[in-house]
Design a protein around this nucleic acid. Structure first.
Length: 731
DNA sequence: GCCGTATAATTTTTT
DNA sequence: ATTATACGGC
C-alpha cells in the first residue's frame, strides 16, 4: 500500500507514536490512509486489543473493520461510533453511575415521546413550548454539559425557563426508569471517566492507539471523550476536512480542529491535497463553489485525473419532470457502459425520494433507498420492539405507553393516566400496576382485565428469554395479538406491514448468527444505535438513492445531485443565518465531490411542498460554478402545466365499504356501569382526569345521561355520567 | 370511558 | 400529503 502512496499519504500511514492530525481534502484517500495505518500498526506487532477506531456511522465502522480484517485477519479491535463505544463502556460500569447494565437507550422519537409525557404530567401548556422544541433545547444543554440546575440558572426568557423545568423532570424520569437518550450515552461516559480514575485508567491504558475519523463533525463532548481516552499514551490520530463539516446542527464544531494542536502540543499535521477520485472538471466546479465560503481556510485540491466530461445541468418544470429526466439520464449512462450501481441520486430532504422512486418504478429501473424512513423507526417495527423492550426493562415508560393499547384492548387515555399516577405515587413500575399490584388505584373491571392480559403478554414473552432473539420476536408478534390484528384489519398497507415484520425477524435472525451471545439486550442496543438495517448492498445492480448527509464518505462513478433550488439547497430553514448557508454550501460540496467521472445537477421551476405547488428559483450555488464546465440540458418533452402523467397516490376505492360494514360486529356496550349516577346540579364531584368540579346541569339523552360540569382547573366540560365514574365530594 | 371520523398543523439533515 | 389533535357517538 505504501508503494502506491503519495509522500503525504506515506507520512500519515508511517506515523507511529504521538498525536497526528490529518487534514484531508475530499477524495484524497483519507479512509484508506487511516485503515492502512491501523493495519500497519498491527503488522508491527501492536495488539488489535490495544486499538480504538471511532467512525461517524455504524456503516463506516463495519466497512473499516472489513478492510482491516482483509489485511490482517480477524481482530478484536474496537471499531465503532462514539455512541456505540459509550454504550459498551457504560454497560460494563452501569452500577457506578446509578444504572443497571440492562438500561434502555431512547432514540430521538422515544426521547420526544418521553419529554411529551413529562410535559403532560406537569400540566404545562403546550402553547409556549412544543415537545420537539423542548427536546432540542434539552439536547443542546446536554451537549454543553449543563445539568438541569445549571441550565436553569442561566435560562433566559419564558421558553428556556419552562424547558429548564421539563429538563429536570425529564432527567429524573429517565434515570428512575433506567433509560438513557443519545446525549446521555456521551455525557455519562464522560462523567464516568472523569469521576472514576480506576475506570479511566483501565481504558486509557488499554487504548494505545486511537483514531477518530470525520473529526470535523465531532462535538466538543465527543472530543473530550477522545482526549480522556488518549490521556495516557497520547497516540491519537484525527482525520477530517473542515470543508465537509455538515453536522453543526448536531453540535459539531470546528473548534475541535483548532483545539487539537493546543491540547496536543507538537502534534504532527499532515495535509492530503491530492484528489484521486474526481475528474478535473468536477473538482474545478466543487472548488469554485466552496471558495465562496468566507469562514474558511484556503485549501488547494489538485488531481492528475483526466479533464473529464462537462457537468450536466438539468432544468425541469416540476419535481415529476425532474424525476423522469433523472431516470432518462440513468438509462443514458447505462447505455454508455455504466452499471446501475455506479449511479447515485442525492437530495437534500428525504421527501424528495418519492417522485424519483415512482419514476424509477414506472420504468422498471431497480433502486436501493438508503436511510429514508429508517427501518427501525417504522410504526409496526417500533411496536414489536416496544414489547421486547418491556421484557428487558419493565419500567420503560415510553414503550409501555406505546403498546399498552396496541392492538386496541380498551385501555384509553384516562386509564393510562391512572396507571402512571399510581406508578409514580407508589414507586412501582407501570408493568406492576398493569399486573394489578397497585394498592391505591381503582379501575373498571373491563380495564383491569385488559391490563392484566397485557401484563401477561409481557410475562409470556419473558418466559421465552434465552432462546434466539428471532424466536422471541416471533412470539412477541403472536402473543401481543399484533398478528391477529393485522390479519383482521386488512388495508392497502397490510402487505407492507407484514413485509416489515418479516424483515425485523430476519434482522433478528441475522443478529443471532453474528452475535450468538448478544441476547435480546444486545439486539435492542444494536437496533437503537444502528437505526437502519445494513442492507445496502453495493454489489447489487441498483441505482442508489440517499440524502446528501448520508453520502458523506462514499463515492460513485456517476452522481446526480437533485433539487438545486433556493429554499431547498440551501434549505429555507437555514437561510436566515449566513453561517448556516455556508453549511449548506459545504453540503452541496460534499455531494458534488462524491462523483468520480460524471456529475449531474438538477433543479425544478416548481415543486410541491405540503401538497401545494410553489415556484422555485435555481440555487445560488449554481451561479458559483464556472459556466465553462457546465452543459445545460433542457427537457426534451414538455407537458401541460400541472398536468400529471401518472398518479396513483390518493386513489380510493369506495365500492367495498358497504360490504365491510355488514361484516362488522355491533359495538359492544360496557358490561358494567357504575350504579350511582344520580348527581344533581350544584353538587361537587371529582373526575379521574379533570379533577374537582361543580355540576352545572344534568340531562338525559337517550340511554345516557350528560352532565355539564365546571372543573376548577379544566373549565367547563360535558361528561357522560354512565362512563365518567365520578366521585361525590362533600362541600 | 373508548373509538372512529373530521379538522388542523406541519415539513432538514442523524447517532 | 401525511400526521397529530379535537370532537362527537355510543
Amino acid at each position: 500500500m505504501l508503494e502506491n502512496a503519495t509522500p503525504a499519504q506515506a507520512a500519515a500511514i508511517e506515523h507511529r507514536d504521538g498525536p497526528l492530525m490529518i487534514l484531508a481534502g475530499a477524495g484524497s484517500g483519507k479512509t484508506l490512509a487511516i485503515t492502512a495505518r491501523i493495519a500497519r500498526l498491527i503488522g508491527q506487532g501492536v495488539k488489535p486489543y490495544n486499538i480504538l477506531a471511532i467512525t461517524f456511522t455504524n456503516k463506516a465502522a463495519s466497512e473499516m473493520r472489513e478492510r482491516v480484517e482483509a489485511l490482517v485477519g480477524k481482530t478484536d479491535a474496537w471499531i465503532s461510533t462514539f455512541h456505540a463505544m459509550c454504550a459498551r463502556i457504560l454497560r460494563a460500569h452501569a452500577d457506578k453511575i446509578g444504572f443497571t447494565r440492562d438500561f434502555t437507550i431512547y432514540d430521538s422519537d422515544d426521547t420526544r415521546a418521553c419529554i411529551k409525557s413529562v410535559m403532560e404530567e406537569m400540566r404545562l401548556g403546550l402553547t409556549t413550548l412544543s415537545p420537539r422544541g423542548c427536546a432540542e433545547i434539552i439536547s443542546t444543554a446536554k451537549r454543553k454539559m449543563l445539568p438541569p440546575e445549571q441550565f436553569a440558572a442561566g435560562a433566559f426568557g419564558p421558553i428556556e425557563k419552562a424547558a429548564a423545568k421539563v429538563y429536570a423532570k425529564y432527567e429524573q424520569a429517565l434515570h428512575s426508569k433506567n433509560c438513557m437518550d443519545f446525549d446521555d450515552l456521551l455525557l455519562f461516559a464522560h462523567r464516568l471517566l472523569n469521576e472514576r480514575p480506576d475506570v479511566l485508567r483501565k481504558y486509557a491504558e488499554r487504548f494505545k492507539y486511537i483514531s477518530v475519523d470525520e473529526f470535523q463533525d465531532t462535538n466538543s463532548l465527543q472530543y473530550m471523550l477522545a482526549r480522556q481516552l488518549a490521556c495516557k499514551h497520547k497516540n491519537i490520530c484525527v482525520v477530517g476536512d473542515p470543508d465537509q463539516t455538515i453536522y453543526t446542527w448536531r453540535g459539531a464544531t470546528l473548534r475541535n480542529v483548532f483545539d487539537f494542536e493546543r491540547d496536543f502540543p507538537g502534534a504532527k499535521v499532515v495535509l492530503l491535497e491530492q484528489n484521486f477520485r474526481s475528474t478535473k472538471k468536477i473538482l474545478r466546479a466543487a472548488s469554485s463553489l466552496i471558495s465562496h465560503n468566507e469562514e474558511r481556510k484556503e485549501k488547494r485540491l489538485v488531481t492528475n485525473n483526466p479533464e473529464g466530461e462537462n457537468i450536466i445541468l438539468l432544468e425541469a418544470d416540476d419535481e415529476l419532470a425532474e424525476a423522469e429526466h433523472i431516470v432518462r439520464l440513468v438509462r443514458e449512462f447505462r447505455d454508455e457502459g455504466f452499471a446501475l450501481h455506479d449511479v447515485a441520486v442525492l437530495y437534500r430532504v428525504n421527501a424528495q425520494s418519492r417522485p424519483i422512486e415512482e419514476a424509477l418504478l414506472q420504468e422498471g429501473v431497480p433502486y436501493a433507498l438508503v436511510g429514508a424512513v429508517e427501518f427501525y423507526r417504522r410504526k409496526e417495527i417500533k411496536d414489536i420492539l416496544a414489547y421486547l423492550r418491556l421484557v428487558v426493562n419493565p419500567a420503560d415508560i415510553v414503550s409501555f405507553m406505546r403498546v399498552v393499547n396496541i392492538p386496541p384492548r380498551g385501555i384509553g387515555a384516562v386509564t393510562v393516566g391512572k396507571i402512571s399516577d399510581a406508578a409514580s405515587r407508589e414507586g412501582i413500575t407501570l408493568a406492576d400496576v398493569a399486573a394489578g399490584k397497585s394498592k391505591s388505584a381503582s379501575f373498571f373491571p373491563k380495564q383491569a382485565q385488559a391490563m392484566k392480559e397485557f401484563a401477561d403478554v409481557i410475562e409470556k414473552i419473558r418466559a421465552v428469554q434465552g432462546k434466539p432473539v428471532a424466536e422471541m420476536a416471533m412470539e412477541a408478534v403472536r402473543l401481543s395479538g399484533y398478528q391477529a390484528d393485522i390479519e383482521k384489519n386488512k388495508d392497502e398497507r397490510t402487505e407492507d406491514r407484514i413485509a416489515n415484520i418479516d424483515q425485523l425477524i430476519n434482522a433478528a435472525a441475522e443478529y443471532d448468527r453474528g452475535e450468538p451471545q448478544g441476547g435480546l439486550q444486545g439486539f435492542l442496543e444494536h437496533v437503537a444505535l444502528v437505526s437502519d438495517v445494513d442492507q445496502w448492498d453495493e454489489k447489487a445492480d441498483k441505482v442508489t438513492l440517499m440524502t446528501l448527509h448520508s453520502s458523506k464518505g462514499l463515492e460513485f462513478p456517476v452522481v446526480i445531485v437533485s433539487g438545486l433550488e433556493e429554499g431547498l439547497l440551501p434549505h429555507i430553514l437555514t437561510m436566515e443565518r449566513s453561517g448556516d448557508t455556508e453549511e449548506e454550501r459545504r453540503l452541496c460540496f460534499v455531494g458534488m465531490t462524491r462523483a468520480m467521472k460524471r456529475l449531474v445537477l438538477t433543479y425544478a421551476n416548481r415543486r410541491a411542498a405540503a401538497g401545494r405547488y410553489a415556484d422555485r428559483l435555481p440555487s445560488r450555488f449554481l451561479s458559483e460554478i464556472p459556466s465553462d464546465v457546465l452543459s445545460m440540458r433542457r427537457p426534451l418533452t414538455t407537458r401541460p402545466p400541472g398536468g400529471r402523467m401518472f398518479r396513483t397516490a390518493g386513489r380510493r376505492d369506495y365500492g367495498d365499504d358497504e360490504f365491510a360494514d355488514k361484516t362488522q360486529e355491533p359495538a359492544q356496550s360496557p358490561e358494567l356501569l357504575p350504579s350511582d349516577i344520580r348527581f344533581k346540579p350544584g353538587e361537587r364531584v371529582r373526575h379521574g382526569h379533570f379533577g374537582a368540579g361543580k355540576i352545572l346541569s344534568v340531562q338525559k339523552r337517550g340511554k345516557l345521561t350528560h352532565a355539564r360540569i365546571f372543573f376548577d382547573e379544566a373549565g367547563e366540560r360535558t361528561v357522560v355520567l354512565e362512563y365518567a365514574n365520578l366521585e361525590r365530594l362533600e362541600d
